[in-house]
């Protein structure tokens, strides 16, 4: 894949999907995210990069309120999804997470069959009126997860019987099955081998056509390969945010440059 060709695709203007303004996150007394503002566009892959512990995953988890499950975590500031504050008291995180799906670092298929793994989301959200519709959703999702051909003959096999790369694509298919508008990916390739990584990256590029994708990665090459926009986090601060090509070729902040050239991280 040619990085330059990817950059050209990202030129046309898109609407803002998620707008975060002055977000602060605290873990107990620790100030984990400091005053971060960022706008995430529709039909775009946005990459969060930075050294480990810089807060990129924490920030990602704020976008679908997964941090709610941690007792000591406190979020301040505004995060708007299509102009609506997702931390508004009236918002049900369950409904939000149906719109903003998530794929995790370690593939985490449920101890169920491949079919039931994918059908889990549509079932709880009531997306299918009958078995035929559900079958269709499952098939489409598995196709979109680029794993249909590998599993179509063994949909009853347990999800845990797949290889690591297949498991991660299954988890992506599972996330896609709930028809989200935004897909958050927390280092989706860190547990995978290079071949599986390549497959997943290809898939991410494909997913951009339908969704707004946010990916956390600590591989700069990966960010350069798959994203149109890149945000660089350091010690809880958003240091720099812009077009991927610009960040990698002409960083404005010296810290970004140090990281990209391998001096910190």
């Amino acid at each position: 894949m040619n990085d330059m060709s990817r950059l050209e695709k990202a030129v046309d203007t898109r609407q803002t999907k998620i707008a975060a303004k002055n977000v602060q996150v605290y873990y107990g007394d620790a100030h984990a995210i400091k005053d971060v503002s960022v706008e995430i566009e529709d039909n775009t892959v946005t990459a969060f990069i930075g050294p480990s512990g810089c807060g990129k995953s924490t920030f990602l988890r704020c976008l679908n309120r997964m941090n709610d499950t941690i007792d000591i975590c406190r979020v301040e500031g505004d995060i708007l999804l299509d102009g609506e504050d997702i931390y508004d008291k009236r918002v049900d995180p369950v409904q939000l997470r149906a719109k903003v799906g998530m794929v995790f670092q370690k593939p985490n298929p449920f101890p169920k069959s491949i079919y039931d793994n994918v059908a889990y989301g549509p079932r709880i959200h009531g997306l299918a009126r009958n078995k035929a519709e559900l079958d269709e959703i499952v098939e489409n999702s598995l196709r979109r997860g680029a794993i249909w051909d590998e599993v179509k003959d063994r949909l009853d096999a347990p999800g845990t019987s797949l290889s690591g790369g297949q498991q991660q694509r299954l988890c992506i298919a599972r996330a896609v099955a709930t028809e989200p508008e935004v897909l958050l990916m927390d280092e989706p390739c860190s547990a995978l081998d290079p071949i599986a990584t390549a497959q997943v990256e290809e898939l991410i590029d494909d997913l951009r056509k339908r969704y707004s994708v946010v990916i956390v990665t600590h591989s700069m090459q990966q960010a350069a390969r798959v994203s149109q926009k890149t945000a660089f986090f350091h010690l809880g601060n958003l240091v720099e945010f812009g077009e991927t090509g610009q960040i990698f070729t002409n960083p404005k902040d010296p810290r970004t440059e140090s990281y990209i050239t391998g001096r910190i991280g």
Binding site: M66, T69, V94, R97, K99, G101, M102, Y120, C171, A175
Partner: peptide, 8 residues
């Protein structure tokens, strides 16, 4: 996390 992330 996987289940909650799907909106369960």
């Amino acid at each position: 996390d996987g289940s909650l992330g799907l909106g369960a």
